[in-house]
């Protein structure tokens, strides 16, 4: 039993199983859409899991990268006549490139200084998306062309469900492999102590930068999928509150746990849908829940549960 719990592939198999089951029990395409949003935000949060959970670096501006990916898919086809799918890739590359350029200097900062630097980056990206009306459509956003995948026009909740689920599976597989690779071990080492990691011969700044770029690519792909699925994108996607939401997903689920990240994303995507009956109190309840989780389950849901189960098992 313990072996199953600890196996690297268990979360992936569990995830795939859930993905296969949801369409069977989902009563309407509304439920499918919510599930697809869970997969997309999980993907964005997974990048942060690599950055925060593995490498121990915080980013309070990560929605900025999500915005870059989303607007690449919106702007490319509309303004340059490019294929949306190509733009999804270009957006990921662009986002990674921006992360590399920005990350090189700011990853030298530590703790709260890194937090304010990433926060500032996010604010600037959101401001540009907001202000360059000619290019981005301004605060009311811009519509996004339909995506054609090898001649197949992707529409409808079920199709988007499978596309987003597939993207998340690939992302999760990659993240799990990174965790088990020498790079992953190096990242965890610098998470625990940068000084010790340096002493052990790890090129700390290169590893941090790699995690940052990777996290940006994850967010950009998720952003691109979100834009293409909704058919419309607004600068809200890159806002500070979205960055906070992404961080909350990572922490609520469990810092550094892939399955936990998905659970955290599911929690925060589903919550507003579950709280509609208490509309007036939604914000208060959301704030309270975040606090309660952080205070009583600082390790996140999944690691705490795992610890509990392992403790009960002989």
């Amino acid at each position: 039993m313990k072996a199953i719990l600890r196996s690297r592939l268990t979360p992936l198999l569990a995830l795939a199983l859930v993905m296969a089951l949801v369409p069977m029990i989902a009563p309407t395409s509304f439920h499918l859409r919510v599930a697809a949003l869970v997969w997309i935000f999980s993907l964005a949060a997974l990048g942060l899991t690599i950055l925060m959970g593995y490498a121990g670096q915080v980013s309070l501006g990560h929605a900025g990268f999500l915005g870059i990916g989303a607007y690449a898919v919106a702007i490319g086809p509309a303004r340059l006549g490019l294929d949306p799918l190509l733009c999804l890739l270009l957006g990921a590359v662009l986002s990674g490139l921006v992360a590399w350029l920005v990350g090189r200097p700011i990853l030298r900062l530590k703790g709260y200084y890194l937090a304010i630097a990433t926060l500032g980056f996010g604010v600037i990206v959101a401001l540009i998306l907001h202000s360059e009306t000619e290019l981005t459509g301004g605060p009311d956003g811009m519509s996004v062309a339909r995506v054609t995948l090898f001649g197949w026009r992707v529409t409808g909740a079920l199709n988007w469900y499978w596309v987003s689920a597939g993207a998340l599976l690939v992302g999760a597989l990659l993240a799990l492999n990174i965790a088990a690779s020498p790079t992953g071990r190096a990242l965890r080492a610098l998470h625990d102590s940068e000084v010790a990691a340096t002493g052990a011969g790890i090129d700390v700044s290169a590893k941090k930068l790699a995690a940052f770029v990777l996290a940006a690519v994850y967010a950009a792909v998720a952003g691109g999928l979100l834009a293409a699925m909704n058919g419309l994108i607004t600068p809200e996607a890159a806002s500070f509150s979205h960055s906070v939401e992404l961080v909350a997903m990572v922490i609520i689920g469990g810092l550094g746990s892939v399955f936990g990240t998905v659970l955290g994303a599911a929690f925060l995507v589903v919550l507003p849908q579950a709280l509609t009956a208490f509309q007036e109190y939604e914000q208060a309840v959301l704030g309270l829940l975040i606090m309660v989780f952080m205070i009583f389950l600082p390790q996140g849901i999944v690691p705490s549960l795992r610890a509990l189960i392992e403790e009960r098992l002989p």
Binding site: S29, F30, V34, N230, T276, Q279
Partner: peptide, 20 residues
């Protein structure tokens, strides 16, 4: 429903109104 000013949420609630 309250979209909190987020177009993505508005879209989800729109689907909910129609489908559910």
């Amino acid at each position: 429903y309250d979209d909190g000013g987020d177009a993505n949420k508005a879209r989800t609630f729109a689907t909910r109104l129609v489908e559910d």
